[in-house]
């Protein structure tokens, strides 16, 4: 009966869309995290000062490497903190939007 559904895949093999959805959420999360790291480390290590040339100088390069390491560490610490609170936050968001 699957060809009656909106997203059937009779002729391409069975695709589990929930699995795909979860993978897409994971991909979006990693991308968002990476983009924020790029932006934060740019602000910390390079900033809006007038660029002398198009290369990263020694100081900037070293700064970027340390910055990525620290950003990853902060993410781990924050993750632990959120977990130790038993994922209280999403439940709280729910209540903020009333009768969802």
């Amino acid at each position: 009966m699957s060809f009656l559904g909106g997203r059937s895949n009779a002729n391409t093999g069975s695709v589990n869309y929930d699995k795909i959805d979860m993978a897409v959420t994971e991909l979006d999360t990693v991308t968002d995290f990476f983009n924020r790291m790029v932006s934060s480390c740019y602000n910390k290590c390079i900033g809006a000062k007038y660029p002398a040339d198009g290369d990263l100088n020694k100081g900037e390069s070293v700064c970027i490497d340390k910055c990525v390491a620290k950003y990853n560490d902060v993410q781990k610490k924050v993750g632990e903190k959120l977990q130790s609170r038993g994922a209280a936050a999403p439940a709280q968001n729910q209540s903020a939007f009333g009768s969802l």
Binding site: T29, D32, R36, Y71, V74, Q75, A87, A89, P90, N93
Partner: peptide, 12 residues
């Protein structure tokens, strides 16, 4: 789930 992940990224 997405809101929670966004909060996580924001705090970080």
């Amino acid at each position: 789930m997405q809101d929670f992940l966004k909060l996580y990224a924001n705090i970080t």
